[in-house]
């Protein structure tokens, strides 16, 4: 028995005998009203995707899944491939199972592959990933005074993020993979 507050991406929920994997979730806690968890879940049997809201007070049944530490190797038009660095086992996952997390991937990244039996059903990224800034415009005078404290920057896997104006090309930054937010600049 589990609570909707324990839902994560990759959690497998048993709803009346059907298995659904959580592809995205958002806790909602209104100022005046009961809290709930808004999810997008995908049927493991049919691939159908639905939106479902779970009240925080509900009780759910989660299926047991196995987590495997692997590395992201490459992606193509439909799928990504990850490899176990010890056994050299490889698994494939369709791009739509990876969803919005596709943009954070870069070669050699350590990821957790979520397995239901022999089938890879989802991946979990580290909460923060380090990237190198490959392109960004230098800050211009007066930016801060007008309230412009952020600018666009491209990082080493091609993703574009918003960073503070003091960040320069060649800097190493941490990015939060739940939100896509810049977290901080770090030493190389």
């Amino acid at each position: 028995m589990a609570s909707p507050n324990d839902i994560k991406k990759g959690t497998v929920i048993n709803l009346n005998g059907d298995l659904w994997v959580v592809t995205s979730f958002q806790r909602v806690s209104p100022g005046k009203g009961s809290s709930f968890v808004r999810t997008r879940i995908k049927s493991l049997a049919t691939g159908k995707v639905v939106e479902n809201n779970f009240k925080s007070a509900e009780t759910l049944t989660f299926e047991t899944v196995n987590n495997r530490k692997m590395q992201f190797i490459y992606s193509d038009a439909d799928s990504i491939t990850c490899m176990d660095g010890q056994t050299f086992d490889q698994v494939m996952l369709s791009n739509d199972m990876v969803g919005d997390d596709m943009k954070f991937l870069k070669e050699g990244l350590d990821v957790t592959v979520i397995m239901h039996g022999e089938k890879a059903i989802s991946i979990e990224l580290p909460l923060k990933i380090q990237y190198v800034i490959t392109q960004t415009e230098p800050a211009t005078k007066g930016d801060t005074a007008s309230g412009n404290v952020l600018k666009d920057a491209t990082v080493d896997n091609g993703m574009v993020i918003r960073v503070p104006i003091f960040v320069k090309e060649g800097d190493n930054v941490l990015v939060n993979t739940e939100t896509g937010d810049y977290v901080e600049r770090v030493a190389k």
Binding site: G147, V149, L150, N176, T179, G180, D181, Y182, V183
Partner: peptide
């Protein structure tokens, strides 16, 4: 919103 951030931690 001012920061363009999606997480309160940011």
């Amino acid at each position: 919103l001012l920061a363009g951030a999606n997480d309160i931690d940011s």
